[in-house]
Amino acid sequence: MVDLPPIRDVIQRHGLSASKALGQNFLLDEQLLARIAALPGDLAGEKVLEVGPGPGGLTRALLRAGAKVTAIEMDRRCLPALAELGEAFPGQLTVIEGDALRLDHGALMEGEPFHVLSNLPYNVGTALFVKWLGGEAWPPQWRSLTLMFQREVADRIVASAGADAYGRLAVLGQWRSEARLAMKVHRSAFTPPPKVMSAIVHVTPAAMPEGVSARMLERLTEAAFGQRRKMLRQSLKSVPGALEALAALGIDETRRAETVSVAEFVSVARALGPV
């Protein structure tokens, strides 16, 4: 195994500090990082995309697991530390300086299958999740998503209908994928400790229901949960044909969005057809 200095020493030597503006919180516990890297299974020889590697804590765990890592980092202060990792693991690490929300991840991974593992910056985590789960093409190029979120966001992704946390993220995360809460992470594991607890969600693609448009489902859930305290007859009246679809499917229009299951949303989207 490649002998590396403790992450804390790397941070001190490069004068790094977590940027609140960039939503950074560094993980220093190498045993914990190794456990996270193991969640998708054997990564030896596998391509991995990591967003926001910072000083490279998770990155080194992925490299030690034998992964070929493409890391997207917009904080150029962290680039020298990542360059050192690249030298320690020749040919395994590619660092891209840029904004992950603006980049074409499929092109970066050269059209080949890949896993995503990331301690996501808090300020872009949800947007990136929606990006990875969106689009009409399915199955996706990614084989799995292993993502660190604030605990409340993680709960929203894995929630069932009727739960307080159930909403748009749950539908988008579950209608053609399997999402589970893989690990809880205490705030004390981070430097600096965030004000909230965190959790890791693991997502794998599942079969896509036939005859359903992803864009229509996204539009439907955006309308339904945009006014989640209102009855469906009010929240969905902006979606042409939605109320008629509810009636045809026997879904009571006086219900609220948080009571409508993923399967029921899929049925409505199928009835409405493509956008």
Rank of each mutant, 00 (worst) to 15 (best):
L108N: 07
A223S: 12
A179L: 13
V153P: 02
T221Q: 09
A214T: 12
K184Y: 01
S177I: 05
L172R: 11
V124T: 09
E110I: 07
K184D: 07
G134K: 04
P140K: 12
A179P: 14
A206I: 03
G173V: 07
L147W: 11
T146K: 09
N119F: 02
P192N: 00
R151L: 05
L232K: 03
L217C: 09
K195S: 12
A189D: 06
N119T: 10
E152M: 06
E222S: 14
Q150D: 05
S144P: 03
S144T: 03
T191M: 15
N119H: 05
Q234A: 12
F114R: 07
Q227H: 11
A179V: 13
L181Y: 04
P113F: 05
V124Y: 00
H186E: 14
E110F: 02
V196N: 10
L128E: 04
T146M: 08
G134S: 15
V130Q: 01
W132V: 01
Q234E: 04
Q234Y: 05
P209N: 13
F114H: 11
M197H: 15
A206S: 15
R233V: 06
R187H: 06
L236T: 01
V130P: 00
T191P: 06
A154K: 08
A170H: 08
S188W: 06
S144F: 03
G162F: 00
S177G: 10
R180V: 15
R229E: 10
P121M: 08
G106Y: 03
Q174I: 06
L232R: 01
H202P: 01
P209R: 13
V203L: 12
S198P: 03
L232C: 01
T146H: 11
G134R: 06
R233H: 07
G226E: 01
V153R: 00
S177A: 15
R168H: 12
M148G: 09
T126S: 11
H115T: 02
A206R: 15
Q150S: 02
R228A: 10
A182M: 13
R176M: 01
T146G: 11
R215K: 14
F149K: 04
P139Y: 04
V212K: 04
L232H: 03
S160V: 13
E178I: 14
R156M: 06
R168W: 05
M216F: 06
A127L: 15
R219D: 10
R176Y: 02
F149A: 08
Q141S: 15
I200H: 01
W175H: 02
L133P: 03
S118I: 12
R187S: 14
K195G: 15
L108E: 04
L108I: 08
R156F: 06
T204I: 15
E112L: 15
P194A: 09
A154Y: 09
P194E: 04
H202L: 14
F149I: 06
E222N: 13
R219C: 07
E110D: 14
L172S: 11
I200K: 07
M208C: 14
K184G: 12
N123S: 07
Q227K: 11
G226C: 00
H105A: 10
P113G: 07
H105C: 06
G162V: 00
G167K: 02
V158T: 13
